[in-house]
Amino acid sequence: MTKTIIECNDVNFRYEHSTVLENISLDVKEGEFWALIGPNGSGKSTLINIILGLLKADKGTVKLFGQNVDSFKQRERIGYVSQKSNSFNSGFPATVLEVVKSGLTRKVGLFKGFSKHDEQKALDSLRIVKMEDFASKNIGELSGGQQQRVFIARALVGEPDLLIMDEPTVGIDQKNVASFYSMLNELNGEHGIAILLVTHEIDLVTELATHVACLNRSIHFHGMQSDYKKMNDTDISLWYGHPVRRVHQEQKGI
């Protein structure tokens, strides 16, 4: 039986003056690829932060791998990739290999340094994202798309069961976005890693994801990708609060 790895049950959250999330219930199971879509300010990043334990829900519960998020200790089972612009200073003196190895920090444990085996793991992880030739390069010398691949390698190095990504393609050009998503598809299909991806690119990602959740303060739709595709654009526009027209990939030539 497939296990549930994320369980959000009736989650509510409000910032000082406004309610951001209302009655959110969402389950992500092993091996699933979820696309979490919604307009700006719909609460997508807030929900991700609650799932990761960075924010605390006002009401409701979040469980990761069956444990309450507050007491969840097996953090190495989760790989996380944030929006590139938020996460690091491009002038930081670090090589790609150093950055990827840092993904093993928790797994290696306190008071210990990285071993040769850890270095090999980091190189293997870079190979998965096709960045092994850049291991000794300074992270700031890479393009936005290459940096995001490195951050995925960092998230993968601990061999997680779940990959959570918050708009990882912000600031990446369109050509690289397509190859980035096909890599995610490979990670999910071939390596069996469950993925929860927050994105704006509804056309591209909903073709790849196995499941889709539409969020705008509350969840308006969640289910299989095939069911999402059957929805008409008018309904989706209503949830978004502005007109939305989905373009199929065949039309885009991808």
């Binding site: 690091f88 840092s102 306190l110 008071f111 990285f114």
Partner: peptide
């Protein structure tokens, strides 16, 4: 520095990621 080098690096490079990974 010997015992906390990797934690210090992770925290310095990306504080949010370090927090998510349970450091």
């Amino acid at each position: 520095i010997r015992f906390f080098y990797k934690e210090m690096f992770a925290l310095s490079f990306d504080k949010e990621y370090a927090k998510v990974s349970g450091i």
